[in-house]
């Protein structure tokens, strides 16, 4: 288990003007890079907060999180440098072409052949002929395929996906989900998905239900 995220008895809550809302209490779980994991649950259960904590974006109110890369414990910053994200709203850069969006993380990491690699990935996700299209000229499904490819293109150790198919119809969701899981298995990257969709969750190696502050394994 060379790359992992260990959640040890974590708790979380947030405060409003009048009350404190407890999200979950004393949760423990280990996420491994060679597995895919889905977290399901009703709205407001704290799925996104759990994802943020696992990704090192937020500190839990109680308990601790241990990140390991190549068998060595690392801090949240190093963890984030080795992670990728997929969002419900796609979040592509509106001013960049599809290929520009795909090449962006590679260029930020200093790859000289960023556009060549991006072109290969575009072909892989079936959007070779859309390279010179801006996000508003693409359908939702096409945008999300680019977002998926963008997350995987730098070969991170973990990908965190927040409702990646929430904005797509069933048919397109299937295609995007297939793409995500295929990429994860092909690259050996850990994939953590937060979703409402049980169908999507069933594709993962493991599936957890977050409900009433408790985390339960689902079939």
């Amino acid at each position: 288990m060379r790359d992992s995220i260990e959640l040890n008895s974590i708790s979380h809550h947030f405060d409003t003007a009048s009350e404190r809302i407890e999200l979950f209490h004393s949760l423990s779980y280990t996420i491994r890079a060679d597995k895919t994991l889905a977290i399901i649950g009703p709205s407001g259960a704290g799925k996104s907060s759990l994802l943020s904590i696992a990704a090192g974006l937020e500190m839990p109110a109680g308990g601790d999180v241990c990140f390991t890369i190549d068998g060595v414990p690392v801090d949240a910053l190093t963890m984030r440098a080795n992670s990728g994200f997929i969002f419900q709203q796609f979040h592509l850069m509106p001013e960049l072409y599809a290929i520009g969006n795909l090449a962006l993380p590679l260029r930020l990491k200093g790859y000289r052949d960023a556009f060549d690699i991006a072109a290969l990935w575009l072909e892989k996700v079936g959007l070779k002929d859309r390279a010179r299209h801006r996000p508003h000229q693409l359908s939702g499904g096409e945008q999300q395929r680019i977002a998926v490819a963008r997350a995987f293109v730098t070969a991170p150790r973990f990908i965190f996906a927040d409702e990646p198919t929430g904005n797509l119809d069933m048919h397109t969701s299937e295609a995007v989900a297939g793409l995500m899981f295929d990429c994860a298995r092909e690259t050996g990257c850990g994939l953590v998905i937060v979703t409402h969709s049980r169908q999507l969750a069933m594709r993962a190696d493991a599936s957890l239900l977050l409900e009433s502050g408790q985390l339960k394994a689902t079939a």
Partner: peptide, 16 residues
């Protein structure tokens, strides 16, 4: 802010 948040999603450090 939007651009920097997206950069962060690729693992780009805040300083960079």
């Amino acid at each position: 802010r939007y651009r920097l948040a997206i950069y962060a999603s690729f693992g780009t450090r805040t300083r960079t």
